[in-house]
C-alpha cells in the first residue's frame, strides 16, 4: 500500500498550477454544514471559503456559498437541503448532522439531479458520495514511522480514542496490522484517551507504574501532549510519541526538539477535507464517475514541516490544509484504479 501524504508545500504548488475548466464554469456548489461551534469546524469553514473563493475567481465554478444551520438539528438541515434543491444548486456538499436522518432529503436532491457529496459527518443514502479519511492507514503508518526511527523495535503503549466509534476501531485495526508488519514492536499496554489531552494524561499516569520500558506511544490525535505530561511527571524516559496535529502537541514537540532534539511525526484529519468535498463534487460535475466511497489522504506534519505547520495553527486549534483540484483528481484516480 502506498503512503499518500499531503504536504502543505505540495498543495501550494498544485494550486498555482491549476487551470480553469470550462465545463463547470456555470456550476453552483453549496456547502450544507450542521455545526460551527468548535475550532475544527471554524477552520473547516475558513478552508472552504478560502479555496472556493479562489475557484470562483478562477472561473472554475460560478459560486460556492456555505450554509450552516443554527442549531445542529437534522430537521433543520433537512429543510436547508430542501431549500438548496429549490435554489437549483448543481451540487451540495454536506457535513451531516446525522448519518441517517438526512437520507430522505438527500434522496430528494439526487432525484432532482443534484450531485450530493458527504464528508466527515457522512450520510448512508446510497445515491450520495462519501469522503472519508483512511483511519486504518493512520494507525499503520505510525508503525512504519516507528520502525524507521527505532529499527531494533521495543515496547509500545497504545492510546485509543472514544470507545465504540468507528474511527477508534479503524485506527486500532491499522495499528494491529502495523505491529504484524513490524513484529519487532510489542504493544504492552492500552488505554482509552478519548482524543482529549486531560483524559489521556490521567489514563496514562494510571497505567504507567505497571509498564516496562516504553519505546514508543502510538496515538489517535489529541492525546500526545497529555501522554507526554504523564511521562514527564513520573520521571520516566520520554518515549517516541506519535502526534495528532493539535497545536499543543506540535508546540511541545518543537520545544522538546529545541531543548535536546526530538524526532517524531504527526498526522490527523485536516478540517480542509471540506475542500476535498468541493473539488470532488466539481470533478463529478465535470464528468468524472468515481465510486461512491472515497478516501482522502491524511495531513502529515514531519520534522521538516513542523515550524511551518505550527506557525499556521492557532492556539487550541489543529493543523489544517486545503485540498486542491489535483488532490481530488488523484483521489478519484486512486479509487477507480486509473
Amino acid at each position: 500500500m502506498q503512503a499518500r501524504t499531503i504536504l502543505a508545500s505540495s498543495v501550494l504548488i498544485a494550486a498555482s498550477a491549476m487551470t480553469a475548466q470550462a465545463d463547470t464554469s456555470n456550476a453552483r456548489i453549496a456547502l450544507s454544514n450542521n455545526y460551527a461551534g468548535n475550532s475544527w469546524r471554524q477552520a473547516m469553514l475558513e478552508s472552504w471559503n478560502k479555496e472556493t473563493a479562489q475557484a470562483v475567481a478562477d472561473g472554475i465554478v460560478a459560486e460556492a456559498p456555505a450554509f450552516t444551520t443554527a442549531e445542529n438539528q437534522a430537521t433543520e438541515q433537512a429543510a436547508q437541503i430542501q431549500n438548496m434543491i429549490l435554489e437549483g444548486y448543481d451540487a451540495i456538499v454536506i457535513n451531516a448532522a446525522s448519518p441517517t436522518a438526512l437520507n430522505g432529503a438527500i434522496r430528494e436532491a439526487c432525484d432532482a439531479g443534484i450531485v450530493v457529496v458527504t464528508f466527515d459527518g457522512i450520510a448512508t443514502e446510497p445515491c450520495a458520495w462519501r469522503i472519508e479519511v483512511d483511519f486504518h492507514e493512520l494507525g499503520r503508518m505510525q508503525l512504519e514511522f516507528m520502525a524507521g526511527q527505532l529499527p531494533e523495535g521495543g515496547n509500545l503503549l497504545e492510546i485509543r480514542g472514544l470507545a465504540g466509534t468507528s474511527v477508534d476501531d479503524n485506527i486500532h485495526a491499522g495499528i494491529l496490522d502495523g505491529v504484524a508488519e513490524y513484529p519487532q514492536f510489542t504493544i504492552v499496554g492500552s488505554v482509552h484517551g478519548d482524543w482529549a489531552g486531560d483524559v489521556s494524561q490521567r489514563e496514562v499516569a494510571g497505567i504507567l507504574p505497571s509498564l516496562p520500558e516504553i519505546a514508543g506511544i502510538v496515538t489517535q490525535g489529541g492525546d500526545g501532549y497529555g501522554a507526554a505530561q504523564a511521562f514527564a511527571a513520573a520521571g520516566r524516559d520520554m518515549p517516541l510519541i506519535f502526534m495528532g496535529n493539535r497545536q499543543d502537541e506540535l508546540l511541545w514537540w518543537k520545544e522538546q526538539d529545541e531543548a535536546g532534539g526530538y524526532v517524531t511525526q504527526s498526522a490527523s484529519i485536516a478540517p480542509g477535507v471540506a475542500t476535498a468535498g468541493f473539488w470532488i463534487a466539481q470533478q463529478i460535475l465535470d464528468g468524472a464517475e468515481p465510486p461512491k466511497d472515497l478516501i482522502v489522504p491524511m495531513l502529515v506534519v514531519t520534522q521538516d514541516t513542523l515550524d511551518e505547520a505550527l506557525a499556521n495553527t492557532p492556539e487550541g486549534s489543529v493543523a489544517n490544509t486545503e485540498y486542491s483540484q489535483q488532490d481530488a483528481i488523484d483521489v478519484i484516480n486512486a479509487a477507480t484504479g486509473g
Partner: peptide, 17 residues
C-alpha cells in the same frame, strides 16, 4: 410522520420542536 419523511430515527432529531 417525521420518521417517514426523514426515513430514520434519531434521539436528537427534533429537539428544537
Amino acid at each position: 410522520s417525521l420518521t417517514g419523511i426523514m426515513t430514520s430515527g434519531d434521539a436528537n432529531m427534533a429537539v428544537n420542536y
